[in-house]
Amino acid sequence: MKDLHTITTTVNGKTYTREAESRMLLSDFIRHELGLTGTHVGCEYGVCGACTILYDGHPTRSCLTLAVQANNHTIETVEGLTTDPNKLHPLQQSFQDAHGLQCGYCTPGILMTMKAFLAENPNPSETEVREALSGNLCRCTGYQHIVDAILRMKDEG
């Protein structure tokens, strides 16, 4: 017997209402029900950070959140960073300029984590950036260019 719930949630400023089983993870809800596949799924037990989204403004593992827990809450995913397909969000632009990604699998989770981090701490030291990155694994870059991309945001104010 399916335990179905009606979920009304605001994602990137748009309100959706969908039915979902209680066992559905928020990561799967975002990707499969809403079709927003920018949020990536790596480990599904909280370790890699690829699935990080903003839940009521705070970076959160969508694989450790149930879809029903999004009911009446606000979600932001990587697709919400920019509305203009020809213009990247400044943080995305900085990643491109500093070569902060290779395969890009980890990137959406890092962008969402860093958006909130920079809002709270606009002038971070390199150590603070590295600490803020501790919950995101990247198998390609060796992190150096990711750190560069984030530190560049300081210069641009």
């Binding site: 909280g46 839940y55 705070h58 970076p59 959160t60 593992r61 984590t113 600490e131 919950g135």
Partner: peptide, 12 residues
């Protein structure tokens, strides 16, 4: 507190 897990885990 800063030693307990990562920022995203500490948010929840």
């Amino acid at each position: 507190m800063p030693h307990v897990a990562h920022p995203q885990i500490r948010n929840r």
